[in-house]
Write a protein that binds this DNA or RNA. Structure first.
Lengths: 407, 407
DNA sequence: TCTTTTAAGTCAATTGTCTTGACTTATTTG
DNA sequence: CAAATAAGTCAAGACAATTGACTTAAAAGA
């Protein structure tokens, strides 16, 4: 009698879940607003003064917040503002790219403390993982040398690599990294480091970074278009990263566009036209070139005819993708970021003007329809490191629910 | 000293929030899985047997669940399954369309008990609201005649109308209903009925209906393309409807597409080609024709050359939009539903084959990439009615948080 | 200067919900 | 007929937020 029917249900919650949520709410409020007094926190979170006092006391004991000098601001007892302690938590971020791997260590407020990278020789994941574990170990010990207590306060290891994930075969596709995807990477990293590990695609990581320390800070609805070796979008919806059913939401680099009617109804994927890979091809830069970023920067500063051509094509496709994303998501803003030089990002945005008409063109906008975000090779690694911080400290539905592994 | 700085923060929660969540979790589990015993509920929700017992007892007192005959299924004491009581709650749904308004009453499980419609004469919202309030009143008393206790168990009034909302001017645009949007409709309806009122656009409502009783039942990631007089998409992300910053997420009817290179780089909005409005133009049916649905059904059953032409154009644009939505959202499935006859929906889906390649084409799919959903003129009104039920009984983050109006 | 008003923050008791562990009930298995 | 198994109850306990009175510290007004 195989009556072990799968019953689907949302988890319930309990006192512990509520309490954990309230702690997160406090940290989040301090992150968003800067230092706040207990009374202010109570008003903002709709909790009672007493509750806030208890939680703040606990957070202070845990080294996550600290008091500032009290400030007089009118009648009544002066308030004692509390602020986040940057040294309250640390996280590691790992970016695995096609030819290079990068590791970053950040603290609770997203300040970068360590960054190291290594070239990834061809040879697939078996060899690669060993190199990567060494890199992580090296970053970790550098961090511990600088801040002995950091090890104890590490909340996790975020991993970012190019998507899409879990697709069928296609091992030779240079745009993906299929061999890495069928490898038990997360398990290897988890056992190798003893840390909690979570995976995002690189665009999602870039969005996570934008939300922690970049242009999306404090925004609940933002789309980050990430221009790297490939192209993707990180979706921040309702204040959280949206990943879709299989973690592939936002893989707009693979989107086709209807082209000339008749003969060739659909043109190549967006990232064949708008990505550093396509630019490298034009500039005849090897994708494995360690000085790729600098070369592109120089090329963008003084664009020759070919670069202008690329820029025109890329910005035209992006211009239209921006229109679509605005229409589909109704976001507060769209951010163009990347592992690309700021010059290039800025020029692309320039070339996209005027933006296509859309609902986003309303007159009452608070934010620009499109704006530049983080633009450097470390953006994805930073986002990878931001993920464990967000997972540990941001208020989110899943954090309230009882998990499989004890409350 | 204007020190009334706005402090942004997520609300905290308390015992009451946790308890409310757990009640919702129970109702949701019974809705998804059918009748379940207390022990099964405890396992599924990770709550203790005792907690489940208490909550079930309370829900039974409130008339939301009831026990079935106990069933023996192996060793041990027989289980007593509990099921939702359809008569446990009721909700009203109002659809305001361009030329007609519809009201539906549903019960807790989404069964339709009353449906009434009325033609909306031109004359704008002032006159319209009076007619609509009469319609609601009429439906309400029909409901009360059939089920005297329904009035006491009404959880709200859902309203659906064509978007987009809150756009600048453009009063003459026949595709929108601008004059209705600058009118304090919700306030009028709330005071006129004494019920909680909430607004969605029609595509969002259709998606809400699909989730309560249609093809999206139990799905957490689904996109509903709604083909009505206009065209839009309802986005179900993480099990909840996503509305974007201004409630306009999913307004894909307004999306442009890159067309022939050169002269006309961008073609008309999607809904100018794929909507009942465009079909009506071709068939020379007045959009206000009360027998519009039947006429379209007949036209779709025996398509003439013009209809075939329309079908070809519409399905081609939709085919490509499906590709985009799959790429952007990575959903479990896409549902094509509408206030359109099922024949038409089916034919459109047929014409869209073969679907464009995308990440969704993986071999391990559990659900079809695209499938038909509700296809009748009452779909939106049903979705409007489904919204208050979902708001009152579905587990969601916002339901846990302390609200502005007391816990 | 002195009193009143206002606001921040604490104290101690209370409340409400989930949890714990032992117990009862009812059925199948051997 | 005893042992095993599972559903469900009982009563006490744990825990976090709440409540209302209180203390502290400043500004405002007389």
């Amino acid at each position: 009698m195989n009556d072990a029917r799968v019953i689907r249900a949302t988890s319930g919650t309990n006192l512990g879940g509520a309490s954990a949520h309230n702690r997160r709410v406090m940290v989040d409020a301090l992150r968003l607003n800067g230092a706040l007094s207990r009374a202010e926190l109570a008003r903002a979170t709709r909790l009672t003064k007493q509750t806030v006092s208890n939680i703040i006391e606990e957070l202070e004991r845990d080294g996550l917040v600290r008091s500032q000098a009290s400030v007089r601001k009118g009648r009544g007892q002066p308030a004692t503002p509390y602020e986040l302690v940057p040294e309250g938590a640390y996280a590691l971020g790992l970016q695995i790219d096609r030819y290079v791997s990068r590791v970053i260590a950040v603290n609770l407020v997203g300040e970068v403390l360590v960054q190291k990278s290594v070239e990834l020789p061809p040879g697939g994941p078996e060899k690669g993982v060993r190199i990567i574990l060494d890199l992580i170990e090296s970053a970790r010990s550098t961090l511990s040398d600088a801040v002995p207590e950091a090890e104890r306060r590490l909340v996790g290891l975020g991993v970012a690599m190019p998507g899409p994930f879990g697709i069928d075969g296609d091992d030779d596709n240079q745009w993906m990294m299929a061999s890495w995807q069928n490898y038990p990477l997360l398990e290897m990293l988890a056992t190798g480091t003893g840390l909690e590990v979570a995976l995002q695609n690189d665009a999602a990581a870039a969005a996570t970074a934008e939300r922690l320390v970049g242009s999306a800070h404090g925004l609940d609805h933002a789309i980050c278009i990430y221009l790297g070796y490939g192209l993707g979008a990180g979706l921040i919806l309702n204040g959280e990263l949206y990943s879709g059913q299989n973690g592939n939401a936002g893989e707009i680099g693979m989107s086709l566009a209807p082209g000339e009617a008749g003969a060739r109804p659909f043109v190549a994927p967006l990232e064949h036209q708008a990505s550093l890979a396509s630019l490298c091809k034009i500039l005849d830069i090897a994708p494995s070139d360690p000085r790729l970023f600098d070369k592109i920067e120089r090329a963008a500063e003084k664009p020759n005819e070919q670069v202008e051509e690329w820029m025109k094509g890329a910005s035209e496709r992006l211009r239209w993708m921006v229109h679509l994303l605005e229409t589909v998501f109704d976001p507060q803003t769209i951010i163009l970021c990347g592992g690309a030089p700021r010059v290039l990002i800025d020029q692309l945005i320039d070339h996209m003007q005027p933006l296509l008409p859309s609902l986003a063109a309303r007159s009452s906008r608070a934010l620009p329809r499109i704006q530049p975000g983080l633009a450097n090779p470390w953006a994805v690694a930073l986002g990878a490191a931001a993920e464990p911080i967000a997972r540990a400290f941001d208020p989110r539905f899943s954090a309230i629910l009882k998990s499989r592994f004890g409350a």
